[in-house]
Amino acid sequence: MARKGKCVDFEASFIRLIDKVTNGSRIEINQTGTTLYYQPGLLYGGSLEHDCSPSRGIGYYLESLLCLAPFMKHPLKIVLRGVTNDQVDPSVDVLKATALPLLKKFGIDGESLEIKINRRGMPPKGGGEILFACPVKKVLQPIQFTDPGKIKRIRGTAYSVRVSPQMANRMVESARSILNKFLPDIYIYTDHMKGVNSGKSPGFGLCLVAETINGTILSAELASNPQGQGAAVLPEELGQNCAKLLLEEVYRGGCVDSTNQSLALLLMTLGQQDVSKVLLGPLSPYTIEFLRHLRSFFQIMFKIETKTPEEEHKGGEKVLMTCVGIGFSNLSKTIR
């Protein structure tokens, strides 16, 4: 547990989720909720559903599921309920736009790989619902992904629930006012959900995704303050700030955006016994800690080279990460 205190509700919810997707896990939390005993079981998968705690976004749960799903015994098909978009965790929209293409690069592919947003739920009350489905793979392909290429197009989603549908249009307008200076191929979808699909709390937000000619996807997002917390945010302001965040992400660059750095590194580690290379932007603090975890769990250390862009106008310092996969293969999947 990260906090000094007790196991918090969203952590309890996460543990329950892990219990659901595995078979034979033993989980014990002591009475004061300060220590956790966990004996791992087999990743089982199958068709499941789970109510996530509304104090964290679904992204918090989905991030971990994305790491585990390819190695299940049965393909995972899970319905998650809770907060789809918040200010803390990567939103479902961003994970859908960035993490899925990344999984495809590792050979985790197929029709069943999808994230679908059935209902949107904003904090504090949530009420969103998504479907996540992922096929299983025996082995992962190594990747050689060192040239991001130039930005080809920008896509995005402006969503609004339980507020005026005009909010989405205003965000799109202001984001375009910045991005149109750089390239013409911009399309930002407006997504206004109504009735039961709009969850329990009002809110709006914007997700932007920049795609390069080599298929690198960089993302940025912002969401309005939850109802009753903080000052009201103007959609124009939010749109502009989000566009600037996307430009910042483009400046950082690399072949994997900062939200998915650790996922890419994990899948590289678990790949076949072959060299994988990926060029990243500046490592996020999360990724740095993740690298330490990878060392303690898999005894694997990456070769880390800093690359200063020699050409001008090519953004910040890049890091070339190289490793040899440990040759992990899905034990539960029988060979035919």
């Binding site: 490592l283 740095i288 250390m301 070769k303 880390i304």
Partner: peptide
């Protein structure tokens, strides 16, 4: 002058290896 990221991330143990 260029920071050794490996050392920063994994600590001093790496140097010997």
């Amino acid at each position: 002058s260029t920071p050794n990221l490996r050392k920063l991330i994994y600590g001093t143990v790496v140097e010997d290896e």
